[in-house]
Simulated scan of single mutants.
Amino acid sequence: MSPQQFRDISWNGLWKQNPGLAQLLGLCPILAISTTMVNAVSLGIATVLVMTVANLAVSGLRNFVPYEIRIPVFILIIAALVTMVDLAFNAYFHDLYLVLGIFIPLIVTNCIVLARVEAYAAKNDPLTSTVDGIMMGIGLVWVLALLGGLRELLGAGTLFSGIEMIIPGASAWSVFGDDYPGFLIAILPPGAFFALGVLIAVFNVINARLAARARRQPPPTAPAPATRAEDDGEAVAAG
Results as ranks from 00 to 15, higher is better:
47 T>W: 03
38 V>K: 05
29 P>F: 07
9 I>M: 00
32 A>G: 11
6 F>Y: 11
33 I>L: 13
58 V>F: 09
45 I>A: 09
60 G>E: 09
34 S>W: 04
14 L>T: 02
4 Q>F: 04
52 T>E: 07
32 A>Y: 02
47 T>S: 14
16 K>G: 05
11 W>Y: 05
45 I>Q: 05
45 I>W: 09
66 P>F: 04
19 P>Q: 07
38 V>H: 06
11 W>N: 03
63 N>M: 12
22 A>L: 10
50 V>T: 02
14 L>D: 01
56 L>W: 14
19 P>L: 14
31 L>T: 12
47 T>R: 11
48 V>F: 05
34 S>Q: 04
56 L>A: 14
66 P>L: 06
39 N>P: 03
13 G>H: 04
40 A>R: 04
37 M>G: 13
51 M>D: 04
15 W>F: 15
15 W>C: 07
14 L>K: 00
23 Q>S: 11
9 I>F: 00
54 A>S: 15
41 V>L: 09
5 Q>K: 14
56 L>S: 09
58 V>D: 08
7 R>V: 11
18 N>E: 11
25 L>R: 11
44 G>D: 01
42 S>D: 02
38 V>R: 01
13 G>Q: 02
55 N>R: 06
39 N>S: 13
13 G>T: 06
16 K>Q: 13
46 A>R: 02
38 V>Q: 06
47 T>G: 14
10 S>W: 10
48 V>K: 02
49 L>C: 09
5 Q>N: 14
57 A>H: 00
21 L>A: 09
64 F>M: 12
7 R>H: 09
